[in-house]
Design a binder for these strands. Structure first.
Length: 188
DNA sequence: ATTCGGATTCTCT
DNA sequence: GAGAATCCGAATA
Protein backbone atom coordinates (compact mmCIF):
# COMPACT_ATOMS: atom_id res chain seq x y z
CA UNK A 1 0.00 0.00 0.00
CA UNK A 2 1.40 3.37 -1.04
CA UNK A 3 0.43 6.78 0.20
CA UNK A 4 -1.39 8.90 -2.36
CA UNK A 5 0.84 11.70 -3.66
CA UNK A 6 0.22 15.41 -4.04
CA UNK A 7 -0.22 15.21 -7.80
CA UNK A 8 -3.31 13.05 -7.33
CA UNK A 9 -5.19 15.90 -5.67
CA UNK A 10 -4.14 18.61 -8.12
CA UNK A 11 -6.10 17.15 -11.04
CA UNK A 12 -9.63 18.19 -12.08
CA UNK A 13 -12.00 17.78 -9.16
CA UNK A 14 -14.55 15.57 -10.89
CA UNK A 15 -11.75 13.20 -11.91
CA UNK A 16 -10.40 13.09 -8.38
CA UNK A 17 -13.89 12.50 -6.97
CA UNK A 18 -14.24 9.37 -9.09
CA UNK A 19 -10.69 8.19 -8.47
CA UNK A 20 -11.14 8.49 -4.71
CA UNK A 21 -13.57 5.58 -4.84
CA UNK A 22 -11.70 2.50 -3.67
CA UNK A 23 -8.92 4.43 -1.91
CA UNK A 24 -8.33 3.70 1.76
CA UNK A 25 -8.48 6.38 4.40
CA UNK A 26 -5.94 5.51 7.09
CA UNK A 27 -6.30 7.06 10.52
CA UNK A 28 -3.56 6.45 13.05
CA UNK A 29 -4.50 6.70 16.71
CA UNK A 30 -1.63 5.82 19.01
CA UNK A 31 -0.27 2.60 17.55
CA UNK A 32 -3.60 1.55 16.08
CA UNK A 33 -4.71 2.13 12.54
CA UNK A 34 -8.29 2.55 11.40
CA UNK A 35 -8.86 1.94 7.72
CA UNK A 36 -11.87 2.38 5.50
CA UNK A 37 -12.33 2.25 1.76
CA UNK A 38 -14.08 5.23 0.21
CA UNK A 39 -17.35 4.27 -1.50
CA UNK A 40 -19.14 7.60 -1.91
CA UNK A 41 -18.01 11.16 -2.73
CA UNK A 42 -19.44 14.51 -3.82
CA UNK A 43 -17.62 17.26 -5.74
CA UNK A 44 -18.02 20.97 -4.93
CA UNK A 45 -16.72 23.16 -7.70
CA UNK A 46 -15.69 26.50 -6.30
CA UNK A 47 -16.96 30.00 -7.11
CA UNK A 48 -19.47 29.01 -9.77
CA UNK A 49 -21.16 26.25 -7.76
CA UNK A 50 -23.99 27.67 -5.69
CA UNK A 51 -23.96 24.63 -3.43
CA UNK A 52 -20.30 25.14 -2.49
CA UNK A 53 -19.13 27.10 0.54
CA UNK A 54 -16.75 28.92 -1.78
CA UNK A 55 -19.59 30.12 -4.05
CA UNK A 56 -18.76 33.57 -5.36
CA UNK A 57 -15.09 33.16 -4.50
CA UNK A 58 -15.42 34.87 -1.13
CA UNK A 59 -12.85 33.88 1.46
CA UNK A 60 -14.34 33.44 4.92
CA UNK A 61 -13.07 32.17 8.24
CA UNK A 62 -14.75 28.84 7.63
CA UNK A 63 -13.92 28.16 3.98
CA UNK A 64 -10.38 29.52 3.69
CA UNK A 65 -8.86 26.05 3.83
CA UNK A 66 -10.50 25.22 0.52
CA UNK A 67 -8.28 27.81 -1.17
CA UNK A 68 -5.16 25.88 -0.21
CA UNK A 69 -3.50 23.51 -2.65
CA UNK A 70 -4.93 20.04 -3.15
CA UNK A 71 -4.31 17.38 -0.53
CA UNK A 72 -5.46 19.34 2.52
CA UNK A 73 -8.43 18.45 4.70
CA UNK A 74 -11.37 20.81 5.00
CA UNK A 75 -13.64 19.89 7.88
CA UNK A 76 -16.58 21.80 9.28
CA UNK A 77 -19.51 21.36 11.62
CA UNK A 78 -22.97 20.97 10.12
CA UNK A 79 -26.33 21.26 11.92
CA UNK A 80 -24.43 21.95 15.08
CA UNK A 81 -23.44 18.34 15.62
CA UNK A 82 -22.01 16.58 12.59
CA UNK A 83 -18.53 16.99 11.14
CA UNK A 84 -18.12 16.83 7.39
CA UNK A 85 -14.83 15.57 5.93
CA UNK A 86 -13.64 17.11 2.66
CA UNK A 87 -10.46 16.83 0.64
CA UNK A 88 -9.22 19.97 -1.11
CA UNK A 89 -8.35 19.64 -4.81
CA UNK A 90 -6.62 21.68 -7.52
CA UNK A 91 -3.79 24.16 -7.11
CA UNK A 92 -3.63 26.92 -4.51
CA UNK A 93 -6.29 29.58 -5.04
CA UNK A 94 -8.78 27.30 -6.80
CA UNK A 95 -11.43 26.63 -4.13
CA UNK A 96 -12.72 23.18 -5.00
CA UNK A 97 -13.14 20.19 -2.74
CA UNK A 98 -14.70 16.77 -2.36
CA UNK A 99 -17.00 15.66 0.43
CA UNK A 100 -16.40 12.12 1.64
CA UNK A 101 -19.88 10.74 2.30
CA UNK A 102 -19.28 7.08 3.06
CA UNK A 103 -16.63 4.38 3.41
CA UNK A 104 -16.40 0.68 4.04
CA UNK A 105 -14.30 -0.38 7.05
CA UNK A 106 -11.27 -2.49 6.14
CA UNK A 107 -10.39 -4.32 9.29
CA UNK A 108 -9.97 -7.77 10.75
CA UNK A 109 -11.74 -7.15 13.96
CA UNK A 110 -15.13 -5.61 14.35
CA UNK A 111 -15.19 -1.91 15.10
CA UNK A 112 -18.29 -0.33 16.57
CA UNK A 113 -20.07 2.46 14.77
CA UNK A 114 -21.21 3.13 11.24
CA UNK A 115 -19.49 4.77 8.30
CA UNK A 116 -22.40 5.06 5.85
CA UNK A 117 -22.86 8.82 6.02
CA UNK A 118 -20.65 11.91 6.23
CA UNK A 119 -21.36 12.66 9.88
CA UNK A 120 -21.11 9.05 10.99
CA UNK A 121 -17.88 8.60 9.06
CA UNK A 122 -16.21 11.43 10.96
CA UNK A 123 -17.37 10.11 14.28
CA UNK A 124 -16.04 6.65 13.41
CA UNK A 125 -12.64 8.07 12.54
CA UNK A 126 -12.61 10.43 15.52
CA UNK A 127 -12.27 13.56 13.39
CA UNK A 128 -13.01 17.10 14.47
CA UNK A 129 -12.02 20.72 13.90
CA UNK A 130 -8.39 19.98 14.74
CA UNK A 131 -8.08 18.20 11.39
CA UNK A 132 -8.90 21.30 9.38
CA UNK A 133 -5.85 22.23 7.25
CA UNK A 134 -4.26 18.83 7.89
CA UNK A 135 -2.13 17.79 4.89
CA UNK A 136 -2.91 14.26 3.72
CA UNK A 137 0.43 14.11 1.93
CA UNK A 138 2.51 14.61 5.10
CA UNK A 139 0.25 13.93 8.08
CA UNK A 140 1.23 11.34 10.66
CA UNK A 141 -2.35 10.79 11.82
CA UNK A 142 -4.42 10.60 8.64
CA UNK A 143 -3.69 9.88 5.01
CA UNK A 144 -4.85 8.01 1.91
CA UNK A 145 -3.49 4.76 0.56
CA UNK A 146 -3.98 2.93 -2.69
CA UNK A 147 -3.29 -0.70 -3.43
CA UNK A 148 -3.21 0.02 -7.13
CA UNK A 149 -6.55 -1.63 -7.77
CA UNK A 150 -8.45 0.47 -10.22
CA UNK A 151 -12.23 0.64 -9.87
CA UNK A 152 -13.89 -0.22 -13.17
CA UNK A 153 -15.95 2.50 -14.77
CA UNK A 154 -18.93 0.16 -14.84
CA UNK A 155 -18.88 0.00 -11.04
CA UNK A 156 -19.21 3.77 -10.60
CA UNK A 157 -22.65 5.36 -10.51
CA UNK A 158 -23.42 9.06 -10.26
CA UNK A 159 -26.37 11.10 -9.06
CA UNK A 160 -27.40 14.52 -7.89
CA UNK A 161 -25.79 15.68 -4.69
CA UNK A 162 -27.69 15.33 -1.43
CA UNK A 163 -29.14 18.01 0.80
CA UNK A 164 -28.55 21.07 -1.38
CA UNK A 165 -31.98 21.75 -2.88
CA UNK A 166 -31.46 25.48 -2.34
CA UNK A 167 -28.74 25.55 -5.01
CA UNK A 168 -31.16 25.80 -7.94
CA UNK A 169 -29.77 24.35 -11.18
CA UNK A 170 -26.54 23.39 -9.44
CA UNK A 171 -28.48 20.96 -7.28
CA UNK A 172 -29.13 18.90 -10.40
CA UNK A 173 -25.49 18.37 -11.38
CA UNK A 174 -24.57 14.69 -11.24
CA UNK A 175 -21.55 15.28 -9.05
CA UNK A 176 -22.11 12.55 -6.50
CA UNK A 177 -20.23 9.34 -7.20
CA UNK A 178 -20.62 5.96 -5.52
CA UNK A 179 -19.90 2.28 -5.99
CA UNK A 180 -22.56 0.06 -7.47
CA UNK A 181 -24.09 -2.49 -5.09
CA UNK A 182 -22.15 -1.30 -2.09
CA UNK A 183 -24.11 -1.56 1.15
CA UNK A 184 -22.16 1.24 2.85
CA UNK A 185 -23.35 3.90 0.43
CA UNK A 186 -25.53 6.37 2.35
CA UNK A 187 -28.50 6.28 -0.05
CA UNK A 188 -29.54 4.66 -3.28
C1' DA B 1 -25.06 42.43 18.76
C1' DT B 2 -28.40 39.66 16.81
C1' DT B 3 -30.47 36.56 13.70
C1' DC B 4 -30.72 32.69 10.58
C1' DG B 5 -30.26 28.24 8.97
C1' DG B 6 -27.48 24.26 7.38
C1' DA B 7 -23.15 19.31 2.24
C1' DT B 8 -27.14 15.23 9.01
C1' DT B 9 -28.77 11.68 11.93
C1' DC B 10 -31.77 9.55 15.03
C1' DT B 11 -36.25 8.51 16.97
C1' DC B 12 -40.88 7.95 16.80
C1' DT B 13 -45.17 7.30 14.07
C1' DG C 1 -42.47 10.91 6.79
C1' DA C 2 -41.99 14.37 10.43
C1' DG C 3 -39.54 16.63 14.05
C1' DA C 4 -35.82 17.38 17.20
C1' DA C 5 -31.12 17.88 18.56
C1' DT C 6 -27.60 21.64 18.66
C1' DC C 7 -23.59 24.98 17.25
C1' DC C 8 -21.15 28.31 14.87
C1' DG C 9 -20.21 30.85 10.74
C1' DA C 10 -22.03 34.32 7.89
C1' DA C 11 -25.04 38.01 6.89
C1' DT C 12 -27.32 41.97 8.42
C1' DA C 13 -27.39 46.41 11.18
Amino acid sequence: MARVKRSFYLRPTLTVAKDLLGKNIVRKIGNRKLKARIVETEAYLGPKDMAAHTFGGKVTKRNKTVFKKGGHIYIYLCYGLHWQLNFVTRKKGVPECILIRAAEPVSKRKIVGKTNGPGKLCRWFGLDKSFDKEDLVNSKRIWLETDGDKIKKSQILSSERIGIEYAKEWARKPWRFYLRNNSFVSRK
